[in-house]
């Protein structure tokens, strides 16, 4: 193994053999060490939430990863390659330039009995973002989230001053045996949060003014329609089903306390 060991001869055979062996060792060691160093750097630079999202996004089912233009029918079947971050998406830039956004027709979009006001932007993880006059935004959960979880038993809100990262975990909601993680719809600092009286809304000062990754008024109907389909399928997979044509009654978690809603929440709130 080493030149001074018994039986080592400086001839072609041992030199090639040991050379290959040491090369393999060096490559494997370098790979592992560089993975360790890169993860240390990622931890130092607070990329954890970003990494969590991208690793989980890859594991989402295909219908959950559809591009917003696949929902609206402009690019059928397209899977989002950017982890729902449209801010730097060339396809979106191209399409926005081609089709200028139409004005919202209605103030409230109603889908399957659920109301989605158009004065705000929606995130694919079932939160909304509403611009406030002072430059901060209000963040809350939408009607689909309420349909599933109803009034939660427990909410772990981020403390004031915490930096939220887009698609990182913003807070978690527990109901019965189920815990759902709600994704942050944007980058920003928490400036205040409410209590049960105002539906646990967050006030956030955005650190990036670009909100082009959020869904706008005209995308609400196709998106929510799809989401309801996904919800039905996810519920069916854990054995919760409705009569044909019927809707689930709100607060599914309370109505089906025995069902494995963890899986449904992971499915609908886009995490694992």
């Amino acid at each position: 193994m080493l030149p001074w060991n018994y039986g080592f001869h400086f001839t072609t055979g041992p030199i090639i053999f040991m050379g290959i062996f040491y090369t393999v060792l060096v490559i494997v060691a370098t790979t592992v060490i560089s993975a360790v160093l890169r993860s240390r750097r990622a931890m130092r630079e607070h990329h954890t939430e970003h990494i969590r999202w991208h690793s989980e996004f890859d594991d989402l089912t295909t219908p959950a990863r559809l591009c917003r233009y696949a929902l609206t029918g402009e690019m059928p079947g397209r899977i989002c390659p950017n982890g729902f971050d449209c801010r730097h998406c060339d396809v979106r830039a191209h399409l926005v330039a081609k089709l200028p956004e139409a004005q919202p027709a209605e103030a409230v979009v109603v889908v399957a009995g659920m109301a989605f006001p158009t004065d705000r932007l929606y995130h694919r993880g079932h939160t909304w973002v509403k611009q406030e006059a002072d430059g901060t935004v209000t963040v809350g959960v939408d009607e689909v989230a309420k349909l599933i979880l109803g009034a939660p038993d427990k909410i772990d809100l981020p403390h004031v001053g915490r930096q939220l990262r887009l698609n990182g975990v913003a807070w978690s909601v527990s109901k019965g045996r189920t815990t759902a993680r709600v994704l942050a719809p944007l980058d920003g600092k928490v400036v205040a949060h409410g209590g049960p009286a105002d539906n646990w809304r967050l006030r956030i000062r955005p650190t990036d003014a670009d909100m082009s990754h959020l869904l706008t008024a005209n995308e609400i109907r196709p998106w929510v329609t799809r989401e309801i389909q996904r919800l039905h399928v996810a519920l069916a997979a854990v054995g919760v089903q409705t009569e044909p044509g019927q809707q689930h009654r709100p607060d599914i978690a309370a109505n089906h306390p025995d069902a494995d809603l963890d899986a449904v929440c992971a499915h609908m709130f886009l995490h694992r």
Binding site: V32, A35, V36, R38, S39, A42, M43, H47, T48, I51, R52, H54, S55
Partner: peptide, 8 residues
């Protein structure tokens, strides 16, 4: 989580 991602 991060190490898994970087190693993968």
């Amino acid at each position: 989580l991060v190490f898994e991602h970087e190693l993968h």
